[in-house]
């Protein structure tokens, strides 16, 4: 039986993530926890995150979870969501600069008042359902149609240095990286737990994933 852990560091709505996992789960347990022992004992780890990235990193440090996250990110099927994706990069421009875990080389940047084809400024945050263009045939994309819409809400986006880790892109209006993957790691800027059928399918795929890409 799979033991899925959602890392709880007090940032954001974890109930939706855990309820969505339970809904698609079948024979699994889902636990929302900050207990390092439970996180280390999990078969699958979900690393969510909402709000300001500086506050997220401080909360992780206060709970002494940074080391645990690096350990599980090196060995278990690991899904980062939203800030949980951004924190895997080297550094974010948000909050006057915040260092991430540097598991993926690259920076997290702000949308600079994007301009649409009609010359009008697009709104920031980038909020709503946008198309996710899959760049590879990763197991987490199984049974998800190319260019399916997922729910986004963010003002910053990841810019990985190595194009090979880009698992999906999205246009706003320029293309940005909406998912990254390498080895046992998969991370998304959108919210699968709020993305109806496509999102629940991605969570199903994650639970069924053995961490081999």
């Amino acid at each position: 039986m799979h033991r899925v852990v959602v890392i709880d560091y007090g940032m954001g709505n974890l109930r939706s993530v855990s309820k969505a996992l339970e809904t698609v789960g079948g024979n699994i347990t889902v636990e929302v926890t900050a207990d390092p022992a439970k996180i280390l004992a999990a078969s699958h780890v979900v690393f969510p995150g909402q709000g300001a990235i500086g506050a997220c990193m401080s909360a992780l440090n206060q709970l002494d979870l940074a080391g645990v996250i690096q350990t599980v990110a090196a060995e278990k099927p690991f899904l980062g969501i939203c800030i949980g994706m951004q924190l895997l990069l080297t550094r974010s421009d948000e909050n006057e600069g915040v260092n991430g875990f540097d598991i993926f080389s690259g920076n997290v940047r702000h949308f600079d008042l994007p301009v649409a084809n009609n010359g009008r400024h697009l709104k920031v945050p980038h909020m709503g359902w946008n198309e996710v263009h899959q760049m590879n045939s990763h197991p987490l994309w199984q049974n998800i149609e190319q260019d399916s819409r997922f729910y986004f809400v963010h003002s910053y986006f990841a810019e990985p240095e190595n194009n090979a880790v880009i698992a999906a892109t999205t246009a706003y209006p320029d293309s940005f990286t909406s998912a990254i993957a390498k080895d046992n790691l998969f991370a998304v800027q959108f919210h699968p737990e709020k993305s109806h059928h496509a999102g629940l399918q991605l969570l199903t795929n994650f639970i069924n994933w053995d961490g081999q890409s």
């Binding site: 709505n13 109930r15 939706s16 309820k19 969505a20 809904t23 709020k194 993305s195 109806h196």
Partner: peptide, 25 residues
């Protein structure tokens, strides 16, 4: 499993925390 917003009588940080913990986005 789509985004939910709650309004009406949100006056304190605790009101917000309660609604977000209940599953509001």
């Amino acid at each position: 499993f789509i985004p939910l917003t709650v309004g009406g009588g949100i006056r304190t940080v605790e009101d917000i925390r309660q609604m977000l913990n209940a599953g509001a986005d």
